[in-house]
Design a protein around this nucleic acid. Structure first.
Lengths: 259, 259
DNA sequence: CCGTCCTGTTCCATGTTGTGGAACGCTGGT
DNA sequence: ACCAGCGTTCCACAACATGGAACAGGACGG
């Protein structure tokens, strides 16, 4: 009856249903009541009850103080052992590569760590002349499009004092940086033009996490001569990929496995 | 046959077995082959195969390039959404509170983040005179017992250049810091005495993660006058709690739920 | 204070669904 | 080409999960 996914193979509905329950709980990162889960699964109360009990026993689910279900100890054990960016990168990698193919330029993924901006993944340009790998290299946030994203979307506070000038184009006045951020938000993407290195341009957009907060920035960089006339195209391209990534972070569950 | 846990209730063996498979995979954070899992579970090949397929479908498991099983998308989704320290703190909180009750002093939990040491949780002293909340406050690592733990157990490299002197007691020579660390390792705990602030002492021990690496430091701080004669007692107390915490991190799976 | 409603758990007969042995593909080794 | 793992699919059997109904706790509300 009902509908669910109709994916079932044979001889596995118990496990399939159980997995669906766990998936429901993990997706909704808020605690879910028994009733919620019962409704969401469409199973009989008795079945739901037995399954939840089994899942709890197995450490996949857990009950909070109010008796609602949340992800169990296996999940936090996993989380405690693994770097969260590792997961982000994993989720994002395919997107980065597609963008790389579409634009032929270097693609970057950055996160805010404390009050700094750190690159966590990069796909290299196809051109000989391109941005080199700067994963884990410290670049002042106000000089790269990636960094500006965090300022523009207020994931990082704009520094108070005057900022270091790396080139004649670098924005050193915090007030101007704020204005720059406002424009970026309106446009949907942040840009940089020779503010880090003369001749180096970049475009970047925010990646929103499950709760709408900015968790990362996705960007492209390359020689100004190749980018300056394509900023809009690139920005839109990045935006669409970022949206998909956000959806992934929100929902996960790759529709199809590998080929 | 076999043995497993004999925990089963009724009408849930499929889910129980499936959960056991997931648990096995998550605990061994290395990829496990089909054969490993089949052996570990003691199930028939066919059953194992069907279950693994179902779990994979449900996003609880996933196959790496070599076809071995690793934790699935639900796990990394969870990890990507949750701060790993959140989990660490969650696991550690009860221990911190117990130590606080036993010693009446301020208790701290720190982790190494990049090359810095950050406090992630604290329980306040019961005395009026005590260490105030320094969660997220930057304290030079070489001046606190917490920080010294990371140097001593080589979770962080000892800086090369001379170190900032905050008081007349501060160790500024890296070589001396290394020697200090060696003593700490032999003893089992690191101490600081007026090296951060005159009159402020601290004791701290490492918390080992699943693979034996130092993931955090657990420490006590307070006025030297109250601590100096109890260093050994405090160090031993901390050690025993840290060991328990390590076990938690290694195994997880709280034997009993709540009361 | 007792009834009522809503929670979730336990019981039980039913037959659907999971089970494991064996047969079957696949891949890689020699 | 043949053989030796390795994993999936097939199949008849019955064990196990299933869901309706009865049951046990609370939480309200009159």
């Amino acid at each position: 009856m009902s509908s669910t996914r109709a994916e079932a193979s044979t001889g596995t509905q118990a496990v399939d249903r159980a997995a669906a329950l766990v998936e429901t709980v993990v997706h909704a990162d808020a605690p879910l009541s028994f009733a919620d889960l019962q409704a969401a699964s469409g199973l009989a109360k008795s079945t739901t009850s037995r399954m939840l009990a089994a899942l709890e026993r197995g450490g996949l689910l857990e009950r909070d103080a109010g008796g609602s279900y949340v992800a169990g100890s296996l999940f936090w054990l996993y989380a405690a052992r693994h770097d969260p960016w590792e997961e982000l990168v994993r989720l994002a990698r395919p997107a980065l590569e597609r963008i790389g193919e579409e634009t032929s330029e270097s693609v970057h993924l950055s996160v805010a760590r404390g009050d700094k901006v750190v690159q966590v993944a990069q796909v290299d340009s196809r051109y000989l002349l391109g941005t080199r790998d700067w994963t884990e290299i410290d670049v002042p946030a106000h000089t790269s499009a990636l960094g500006k994203v965090f300022y523009a979307w207020q994931a990082l506070p704009v520094p108070a004092g005057p900022l270091a000038a790396l080139t004649e184009n670098t924005i050193t006045d915090p007030a101007l940086l704020v204005r720059d951020g406002q424009r970026a938000r309106q446009r949907g993407w942040a840009v940089t033009d020779g503010e880090l290195e003369i001749g180096l341009s970049g475009v970047a957009v925010p990646v929103h996490g499950a709760r709408g907060d900015v968790v990362a920035a996705l960007g492209i960089s390359g020689p100004t001569t190749r980018l300056e006339d394509r900023l809009e195209e690139l920005g839109k391209n990045l935006s669409s990929h970022a949206t998909q990534l956000s959806t992934l972070l929100r929902g996960s569950a790759p529709k199809e496995g590998v080929a």
